[in-house]
């Protein structure tokens, strides 16, 4: 904590700590809802609240039953002994397992599409020769701004006429287009600090356009591309409005399953899934932070 300068008056001293206290409360407001979910997901009772047993740290008040429920819900024979048949039963029939599989499949496909197209476009947009730069940029960023309900309704209306609704392709296209703005923004941010003379140096040393791209440009923009890809992935992974409109039960994703869980039969299984999702976001956040540090280090070297 920063030391206060010696000329601080008593009033300022008090205010300083009050201010720190207020900030602490706001941080609590930000983080507490996410932390509350974790213990509640181990509740033995089918409630959304702390039981007296949980508050007394009674071991019997905690259980993993809701995590088991993620695997079991929807299975043909959930009570069989653990075996290969049980595993394949879970894999094929559990509602949540299907949702998890769908989420990863759709998320990865949408991310690849969004990252490939978005990176190319960001490189093009960063060139000063690009005509109508501002207008095109604002069109390409607009999927992030236009209310999701309008996007989803429009896609539902249009895709059903071209037989794309209720297909994986339709959902993937929708998620890819929602993810591209993030890729453009992050890649553009890495390109802003890009020293163009590096490209000219490489060319003057006899490298072709492709070699220059792979050996000089790419290593510098890769952190931006990966960060954009992560954003695109989490966008798809978290998206539910387009799925509500475009997907059939076959394409249910995790958020879609949670949505009907909250609306129809509220059970702590949702909290167990939520806990797993929090862990996933911690992992993604860590990757992003490592990338940021790497990028800073690279730039630090190139600046000296």
């Amino acid at each position: 904590m920063a030391k206060l300068p010696p000329y601080t008056s008593t009033g300022e001293y008090i205010w300083h700590y009050i201010y720190r206290g207020i900030c602490g409360l706001i941080f609590l407001f930000l983080i507490l809802p996410i932390l509350v979910v974790l213990p509640l997901s181990f509740n033995v009772e089918p409630y959304f609240s702390f039981t007296s047993g949980m508050l007394n740290f009674d071991a019997e008040a905690y259980s993993l039953r809701w995590y088991g429920d993620i695997l079991r819900n929807g299975m043909m024979a959930p009570d069989e002994a653990f075996s290969w048949a049980w595993v394949s039963d879970t894999w094929d029939n559990s509602q949540w397992m299907r949702a998890i599989r769908n989420s990863f499949f759709i998320g990865i496909c949408a991310t690849l599409l969004a990252t490939a197209l978005g990176t190319l476009a960001a490189i093009g947009l960063a060139r000063s020769e690009m005509p109508y730069r501002r207008l095109i940029m604002s069109i390409l960023i607009s999927p992030m701004i236009v209310p999701l309900i309008i996007t989803a309704a429009g896609m539902f209306y249009f895709y059903s006429q071209v037989h794309l609704s209720q297909t994986y392709l339709g959902v993937i296209m929708a998620h890819a287009v929602l993810g591209t703005p993030f890729v453009i923004i992050t890649v553009t941010a890495t390109l802003v600090g890009f020293d163009k003379s590096l490209v000219r140096a490489s060319q003057s040393l006899g490298a072709g356009a492709l070699t220059t791209f792979y050996k000089v440009q790419m290593p510098l923009i890769v952190p931006g591309v990966i960060a954009g890809g992560l954003f695109a992935f989490i966008t798809s992974f978290d998206e539910v409005v387009a799925v509500l409109f475009l997907a059939s039960p076959e394409q249910r994703t995790i958020p879609r399953q949670m949505w009907s869980g909250i609306r129809e039969q509220i059970s702590p299984t949702i909290l167990a899934v939520a806990t797993l999702l929090v862990i996933l976001s911690i992992i993604l956040l860590t990757i992003l932070e490592l990338l940021r540090r790497r990028s800073e280090r690279l730039r630090g070297i190139s600046n000296t």
Binding site: L113, L117, G118, L120, A121, I123, G124, L125, R127, E129, M130, P131, I136, I139, L140, S142, P143, V146, I150, T151, A153, G154, M155, Y157, F158, Y159, Q161, M173, A174, A176, V177, T180
Partner: peptide
């Protein structure tokens, strides 16, 4: 070089048009 820059942007622009802008206009 202008053509090169435009051709990098065109794939995404076409994709956003087909899967996002046109559907919204069709609904509107």
């Amino acid at each position: 070089s202008k053509v090169r820059a435009v051709s990098l942007v065109v794939p995404l622009f076409a994709f956003v048009m087909v899967s996002f802008v046109i559907p919204i206009f069709a609904l509107m």
